[in-house]
């Protein structure tokens, strides 16, 4: 029975989460714009959130005994809040960087070079 023929289960969510994660990582890795990088971060976080929600959902699990209850949702909510906060800080940094360097190109931000 192929993946696509199955009823929607945890695996499918996981695939979506993985796609989101990989997209986010690739975005972080290739975008030179700091805002792009921040978006990549959001994607990565949300990919993870998808995974948490999927793992904790009682409806998606065939074996209820392993379900996590509401823990996954809670962590997801926590991550979302965290992401919001992080985004705020990161945008402030970016703004400052822009003010100093007139650019948001992360490759220019290499002061931490060893």
């Amino acid at each position: 029975m192929s993946f696509f023929s199955q009823p929607v289960g945890v695996s499918h969510f996981l695939v979506v989460g993985a796609v989101l994660f990989v997209s986010g990582v690739v975005c972080m890795a290739v975008k030179r714009n700091a805002l792009g990088v921040l978006m990549g971060i959001e994607l990565v976080l949300n990919g993870a959130n998808v995974n948490f929600v999927a793992f904790s959902s009682p409806f998606l699990r065939s074996d209820n005994a392993y379900a996590l209850g509401l823990d996954g949702q809670l962590i997801s909510l926590f991550v979302i809040v965290l992401a919001a906060a992080e985004a705020a800080v990161a945008l402030a940094i970016t703004l400052n960087f822009y003010n100093n360097h007139s650019t948001v190109d992360v490759d220019r931000a290499d002061e931490l070079k060893g």
Binding site: M28, A29, V30, K31, R32, V37, V106, D107, A109, D110, E111, L112, K113, G114
Partner: peptide
Amino acid sequence: LRGLQTGKLR
């Protein structure tokens, strides 16, 4: 080893 630390985020 210092060379690894490029400071490049990406």
